[in-house]
Each structure stands twice: as C-alpha cells, then as structure tokens.
Design a binder for these strands. Structure first.
Ligand SMILES: [Mn+2]
Ligand SMILES: [Mn+2]
Ligand SMILES: [Mn+2]
Ligand SMILES: [Mn+2]
Lengths: 221, 221
DNA sequence: ATAATATTTTAGCCAAATCTAAAAAAATAT
DNA sequence: ATATTTTTTTAGATTTGGCTAAAATATTAT
C-alpha cells in the first residue's frame, strides 16, 4: 500500500463520505466540504486519477474506485481509533476528539494502528457511535434503532442519544449509561412501556419509555 | 505560542541537540543531521531568524535564542512522551519508537500532550533514558550516584561502570545490564548489602554489593 | 603572504498545494 | 431554441521547502 500526503488523504476521506449514498461527488460539494476552492479540487482530482484511486472525467463528477475506498477506510480506521483513545483513555470530551484525530489520522505506521487497536480492546465504535473499520477495512454490519425497538435479549451497544439536555444526561449518568454501554432488554412492561435492561456486568435497571425513546443502539445484523 | 511547520520543527529540534554542548551550529553539521543540503539549511536559517528563534549572521553559524529553546523543548517533550507511550503502553521495542515519534511529535495540541503526560503518570525518562521536559519545559537535574546509593523505587539509568575488567563485563552481560539500561532498586538486603533490582521490562535480579558499587546511574533530582 | 581547499551563500529551478480570474461547458429559465 | 446562470476547468501566480551549480567567503597549508 502506497503512502499518500496529508492533503491527498483529506481529499480521499472527504470523497468517501460524500459518495456514501451512491451519488457522484461534485467539484463544488467537495470544495465546500474541505473549505477550499473548486479549482484546487479539480487539480487534486487529476492527481488522484493518475494515482488510480478514482474515476473522473471532466464535468462528470467523481467516485472512488475499490482501491480508493480501501485507502479511505484505512484513514477512517485511524481517525476513529484515535478518537476512541482520546475519549476513553485521555478523557477528552466527545466534542474535542475530532479536531485532534484529524491530525493523528495521518501518522501512517500500520503497526502503530494495529497495536493501538489491540491496546484499546478492538473497539467497534468511536465516541460518536460511528463504526471503526477492522484491520482488513471491514465495517461490521449493524442495525441502528431506538432502544424501544430493540428486540428482547439482543445484545446491543448505545451509540447515540437524541437529547442532550442536562436533565437527560443527569439521568443517564445515574443509570450508568453512556455511549458504548453494552446492554440488552430483558423485559418490556406494556402498562407504561417501560423496559427492564441488563447492562453488561451490572444489575438490572428499569428505564421509562421517555428515556428509552431517546437512546439509540446498534446491534449485529 | 505560535505554530510551526513540520519542517521548521525538525530543524529547530536538530539545532537544539547540536548546540547542547555550547557550540555554535554549522550549516554543514545541520545539513548532515537532517539529511538535506547546505543550501536548504541556509534558506531555513534565514526564515527562523526572521521568526526570531535564533541568532544567525552569514558565515557565523547559529544558535537558538531563549524563544527557540523553549519551542525546541516543547517538541522534545512531545517526542519523548510519545516514545514512552509506544514503549510502555503499546509494547513497542526501544528501537521502533523513535521513527514513529518523529511523526507524532508534530501533532501540536497542547491539551493533548498534557493529558497524555498525565495518563502516563508524568514519566521522567523516555525509553532511551533521556529526560522528558515538563509542562514548563523544565528538565529535571540529574544526580549521578553509585547504584548502592540509589534510593528505593527510583527509576535510574546506567551511565558508567567504574571497573572495566573482563570479569565484570561478563557479569554485567549475564545480568543484562549495560550503559543506558533503566532500572530501579526494589529491595536492599542488609545482611550482605546485596540489592534486588528491576530492569525495565525484565524480571527481578539480585546483584552483589561488590557489583553495585561499580555501577553508576543517573536519575531525576 | 599566497595558494589551495573547504564551507557557506546566492541564483535559479522544481514540485506540491493552494489561490484568483477568465474561459468553457452544462444546466436552467424564458 | 435561445439566453441566462451555474458549475467546472484552465491559465497563470504564489508560498513552502527542496534541489544543483556557481560565486563568495573563510580556513588551512605551503
Ligand atoms: Mn485530517
Ligand atoms: Mn468520530
Ligand atoms: Mn519529526
Ligand atoms: Mn528517545
């Protein structure tokens, strides 16, 4: 696997995100994403085309090919592993990790990244709930649903909370739930739609429908 | 504190090391150190002079001024903290950490570095036994003493042996001790004044008073 | 003191990554 | 179907950090 410049890597990653929905990526969209000028994008697209990372014909937009996607997944892997490290080990807040990971992701040692992965215990999701590609660039399939829609006895991981009020965060803290918490539903009570959950290595707790609606989890497909 | 490019930082750090003995640094010496050309060095020296990091008159060599030294110590701090992290947490070998730290040192977030320092437990020495500057750029003074006088549980680095006989060197080799070995004393036995030492990443070994007397170590004041 | 050698600087060129302004092409509106 | 507007590309410039070759300066040897 060749090495790419910091700038090339930032372009590759941005294209990957923009083309995720199957669309062709446009010059303007990419320029906006990277806070740069359309002319600069065109220049870089020519370069990445000669490096055989994407398909591009003038005026036709562009998409990463398989090689380009593989490179992108490597960068995303590094980015998310560092975010996890910053959040989990160094106790940075969710909002602070992205900017620093934006730099760390460009340190390219393969051995570093794989050892970091191991040290962190092969985490599956970054602090924002986004999946971390494994050594082979594979991202786990997952379903993302509100906790009220999680099937009984299905291990899932909290990946998102749709309400960030102090009150909600207080309650979550009290119930010992945060992003990354692994849990399963043991029982649903139809009277008030409350659910009884078992958090990994903790006791059973009951949470209200109100709260469950705002907790999002992912589980294996 | 301003931000400097990766290239500028590599020059600053190299000058710092070369001028350590009070000498004026020459164009050729720096070019050799950085595997670059003298002409490139001259260009960069002009730039660093306008940035007020060093004193430089054509043909006269150069030295970092106080501001330049402060910047250099920041880079060295990052470099050595990352080396410690790679060695201690990710279990890289001593010989592998430098190259990776050469990249990581350029990630400039002050908060990252200070949190990393805290996470690592404010280590005083990197895996090569070199001292790690603290948040204020301060490097601990060294004490150099015979191993028999090293306080318990104090990490130190072997810097000298006062007997160079084949017999002594044989014994040192057998005990896996050489210049640069980092160790601490775990126990002193008063019966025969032997000491039990823990060498970094190795098992405990016991050495005689006779041997300990002839081993000199340095440690943070 | 002068000549020979070594070091350092200057001059001029190059590649990467950016920019602005103008031209070209595509998309949209009349 | 044209005209207008938007998007994209091209042309040409700039900055950073590097290079080679030649000139300038300093050092060393005779
Ligand atoms: Mn980045
Ligand atoms: Mn993220
Ligand atoms: Mn470096
Ligand atoms: Mn070191």
């Amino acid at each position: 696997m060749l090495n790419y410049s910091q700038s090339e890597e930032n372009y590759i990653k941005a294209i990957y995100h923009l083309q995720a929905d199957g669309e062709t990526v446009t010059t303007n969209a990419l320029a906006q994403e990277l806070l740069t000028r359309p002319a600069s994008v065109t220049d870089m697209m020519k370069k990445l085309k000669t490096k055989k990372l994407l398909n591009y014909q003038p005026y036709q937009g562009f998409r990463l090919n398989n090689e380009g996607k593989k490179v992108a997944l490597g960068i995303i892997r590094r980015h998310r592993l560092w975010e996890y490290f910053l959040s989990e080990k160094l106790k940075f807040g969710w909002d602070e990790v992205h900017e620093i990971a934006e730099e760390l992701e460009h340190v390219s040692s393969k051995k570093l990244v794989d050892k970091l992965d191991e040290y962190l215990g092969f985490p599956k999701f970054d602090p924002h709930g986004d999946p971390i590609p494994d050594m082979n660039g594979k991202i786990e399939n997952y379903q993302q649903v509100s906790l009220v829609d999680l099937p009984l006895n299905t291990l899932a991981e909290v990946c998102h909370v749709s309400n960030q009020s102090t009150e909600m965060l207080d309650l979550l803290k009290h119930k010992n739930i945060s992003i990354g918490t692994r849990l399963e539903i043991k029982q649903k009570f139809h009277f008030d739609s409350s659910v009884e959950i078992k958090i990994r290595q903790q006791h059973l707790v009951t949470i209200s429908e109100q709260l469950a609606k705002n907790i999002f989890v992912r589980y294996g497909a």
